[in-house]
Every structure is written in structure tokens, then in C-alpha cells.
Nucleic acid binder design. Structure first.
Lengths: 195, 195
DNA sequence: CCGCGATGTGTACTGCCGTACGCATCGATG
DNA sequence: CATCGATGCGTACGGCAGTACACATCGCGG
């Protein structure tokens, strides 16, 4: 029972928490599970984190950062391709080996929806994605819309299990990317021109 | 302790389960909570439903049906407006008084993602939405893309708490709705034309 | 070298949960 | 009206969770 000298125990606990959440979901995050995963006694997790919530928040924050980093990296790759193609590639990537991670990210998203504590985290990720997409698009509003299209498409593919139609995805992104928002005009004309 | 004659007890239990899920989320659905909400003894919920899962599935199915019915109704209204406007109106409606319900629906969505048991339900709703959107659009693939745009936009608005920019939404829908998919051509040309 | 506070460890307490089960009651069937 | 199975009711049991807490150990400042 010799007490171990373990200066970054806290760090390792967060790592373990991330693994636990990845495997068992948010509901599966318990002090005991994390302690076992980190190979530390139960009391240790309660010592370093005031409560379950704090532990969860720490894990989520790290996972969010990883997500944004991954997106940034993927967007940087293939920088020769047109934006719509790059986004479609990113979708393909998200559905590939890292699919489980993608599913997690969206689970966290919605965890923020129910638990007010986590909302700022969700909001931050959302803003982060929009920011990364910003260079592809003429204005911030368009970046938000593009984010919506990306999210919606990914969610649908994750849920339906349908095969990924990359050509359709490219088309979707091309359309959303098409030029600056005509609606930028502050005019209040209610009827959209069908073009 | 006189035993009550209560022919549609099962029904009322489902109702109570819906209310419990609405208020406390999926994680909050317990036999005890439902029993209390339905004002029946604990043993009653376990008698009518084999287990927690069955109870949850029953509640979710009902909520999903309600969601689709609401969407159908909203789309039928304002049938004079162009489709993009109608969709934007629906988004506004979803963010209004029924916002809590909307949030619930998406929570259920992702519950299906983690729990394989519930996946068919999620998938069914997804297909249902796409089917309702089908008449607005030239082909089924476009309906799926439109569904993605709608979902993505709603999710973003629910999470970010940003004000709803209805004009931007209309623009988004107009673009996604624009004509039949050019990608319908089976051609395999890999590079999208930058137009 | 010496204490002392930070850190680590093990365990116990309390509460909630799913589920099982024995008994009570009543509608329906003959 | 007699009976029986479906339905209703209350309670108990085992498991797992969060948290608290007493004690052990060790780095570090004096």
C-alpha cells in the first residue's frame, strides 16, 4: 500500500475519464469506473475533483479540443481541393475509423443541451467549428450555415447507417457555399425570389 | 388500499413516462419516477412493462409520433408560402413555446446513437421527416439533404442560444432546395467544377 | 533535521435503482 | 353464484452510486 508519488495524477485521471466516457458514454462516467481505469483508489478521484460534474467537465473539455484539432488538421490537408470536396472528405473521415469518436462528440453536444453546466462547452465547440470553417466562406453568417449543413449531414449519416453518398454531399456543400448571402441586404422583402 | 379498477392503466403509465422523460431526460426515467407521476404503485409499472427498456421505448415511440405529426401539421399550414419560407417558419415554431419538446426530440435522436435498442426508433423518425419533406423536393436524395440542413440548423440554434436569423435560414433552404441534384448524373468525374 | 500541510488510501454510510415476489382484489366465464 | 386468471399492491433484496472521513505517507519550507 506504499503511497505512490504521482505528481500528475490529476492528469492521468482526466485521461482515464476520457476513455471511460468514450466507451460507456456520459451516463457511464462514475468515480469508480474512472478510478479503476486510471488504476487509482476511489478516494483519489474524489480528492482531485469536487464532484462528478467537475470530472465530467474536465473530460469533455479535453475531448472537445481534440475534436477541433482533428477538424483543423483535416481541413488543412488537401488544401488544393475545392472547399466542398474537402468538407466531403472530412465527413468520410468522420465516418471511418474514428466514427466512435464522432458519435461521442455529438453525444457531448446534446449533453450540453440538457445540463446547463455543460452548455458553455457545447457552445464553445460550435463556435470553434464555425471559426475553422470561416475562411471557406465570405461572411460569419455563412460560416454558421455551413456548420449547420455539416452537422446535419453527419448526424443523419451516423443515425441512419445509410451508405455515404459523397457526390450528394459535395453538391450540398457547393450549394451552401455558393457566393455571399444575398440576404445580407438588410431589406425586409419577405418573398424569396425563386431565382 | 382498495384496488382500483383501471382498464387503461398501461396507457396512463406511458403518458406519465413521457412527462418524466420530458422533464428529467432519458437518464431520469426510472420505474419509481414514472410510478409516482402516474400515481400508481411501483409494482404496477413493472407489471405492465418487462423492464426499463420497454418502458423507455414506449415513451419514445409516442414522442416521435407526436413530433412527426407536429411537423406535418406545420408544413400543411401556410401552404401558400414558398417551401423555404415554410421551413423557416417551422424552425421558428420549434424554437418557440415548444422548444423544450424540440430539445427532447434531439436527445432521443442521440440516445438511439448510443443504445442499439433505440436505434430503429431514431432511424424511423429520420425517415419520417425525410418523407414529409419529400414533396418539396425533386428526388429522395435531395429530401435527405434538406433534412440534414433542417436538423443542423435547429441543433445549432438550440445549442448556441443565438438569436434566430430567419432571413439567413430562408436563404439556406432556398439554396438546398435549388433544383434537382446535378450530381444525379451517375458520372464519376471526381473533380467538382468550381462553376 | 523537523514538523506540517498536501496528497494518497481504504472503508463505511446513505440513498436510489431494478427487479422479484407474495398476497389482495376483482371481472369474466361457466 | 363459484372459481380462476388477470390485474393491482406493498415490500424486500441486492447492487451500485456519490460522498465523507479517518488514517498513512511524503515533499518541502523553516
Amino acid at each position: 500500500m506504499a503511497r505512490r508519488y504521482d505528481p500528475d495524477r490529476r492528469q492521468r485521471i482526466v485521461d482515464a475519464a476520457v476513455r471511460v466516457v468514450t466507451e460507456h458514454g456520459i451516463a457511464g462516467l462514475t468515480h469508480r469506473a474512472v478510478a479503476a481505469e486510471a488504476d487509482v483508489p476511489l478516494g483519489s478521484t474524489t480528492y482531485h475533483f469536487a464532484g462528478r460534474d467537475e470530472l465530467l467537465a474536465a473530460a469533455l473539455e479535453r475531448m472537445n479540443d481534440a475534436w477541433l484539432a482533428d477538424l483543423a488538421e483535416r481541413l488543412a490537408q488537401h488544401s488544393d481541393l475545392p472547399p466542398a470536396e474537402r468538407l466531403a472528405r472530412y465527413v468520410a473521415h468522420s465516418l471511418g475509423p474514428g466514427r466512435a469518436e464522432t458519435e461521442l462528440c455529438y453525444e457531448l453536444y446534446f449533453a450540453g443541451l440538457r445540463h446547463p453546466t455543460l452548455r458553455p462547452l457545447s457552445s464553445r465547440v460550435l463556435a470553434g467549428v464555425a471559426e475553422l470553417l470561416r475562411p471557406l466562406v465570405p461572411d460569419p453568417v455563412a460560416a454558421r450555415l455551413l456548420t449547420a449543413a455539416l452537422d446535419g449531414l453527419l448526424i443523419q449519416l451516423l443515425l441512419s447507417g445509410d451508405a455515404y453518398d459523397e457526390r450528394a454531399a459535395v453538391t450540398l456543400f457547393e450549394r451552401v457555399l455558393a457566393g455571399p448571402l444575398p440576404a445580407t441586404r438588410t431589406g425586409s422583402s419577405p418573398a424569396g425570389d425563386t431565382r
